[in-house]
C-alpha cells in the first residue's frame, strides 16, 4: 500500500516536472525592465565590466553583507558543534 502510494506520488511529480516546459517558454521572464536597466547603465555607473559582480557588490551590496554574515554565523555554529564533540582533547592553539 505504502509502496504503491509512493509510486503514484513519484509519477505525478515526474509528470508535472515534464509538463512545465509545455507551459513556460525559456528565456522570456515576465519582468525584464530591471535587467535592461542593469545592462544599459551598469558599466557607466559601477565602472565594472562584469555586470553580475556590480549587481552583487554595488546595487545589492547590502544583501551581500547579509550573505557574508550568514557564512560567519555558519562557521561559528560548526565550530560550536564540533568542539563539543571533540571532548577533553584540546588543541594547542585554542
Amino acid at each position: 500500500m505504502k509502496r504503491e502510494l509512493s509510486v503514484v506520488i513519484f509519477v505525478v511529480l515526474a509528470a508535472g516536472l515534464c509538463a512545465i516546459p509545455a507551459f513556460l517558454t525559456f528565456g522570456e521572464p515576465a519582468e525584464s525592465g530591471m535587467d535592461q536597466y542593469f545592462i544599459g547603465n551598469g558599466q557607466a555607473q559601477a565602472a565594472a565590466n562584469n555586470i553580475v559582480t556590480s549587481v552583487v557588490f554595488d546595487y545589492r551590496g547590502f544583501d551581500t553583507l547579509g550573505e557574508s554574515v550568514i557564512l560567519f554565523a555558519a562557521v561559528i555554529g560548526v565550530g560550536l558543534m564540533f568542539r563539543s564533540m571533540r571532548g577533553e582533547e584540546e588543541h594547542e592553539d585554542e
Binding site: 559601477a46 565602472a47 565594472a48 565590466n49 559582480t53 556590480s54 557588490f57 554595488d58 551590496g61 551581500t64 557574508s68 557564512l71 560567519f72 555558519a74 562557521v75 560548526v78 565550530g79
Partner: peptide, 24 residues
C-alpha cells in the same frame, strides 16, 4: 584598475570564504 570598491569587497569576501570554508 576600475570598479571602485567592488575589487576591495571581492578581496574581503574572498579572504572570508577562504578562512571560513577551511576552518569548517
Amino acid at each position: 584598475n576600475t570598479a571602485g570598491v567592488i575589487p576591495i569587497m571581492n578581496l574581503a569576501v574572498g579572504i572570508e570564504v577562504w578562512g571560513g570554508l577551511a576552518i569548517i
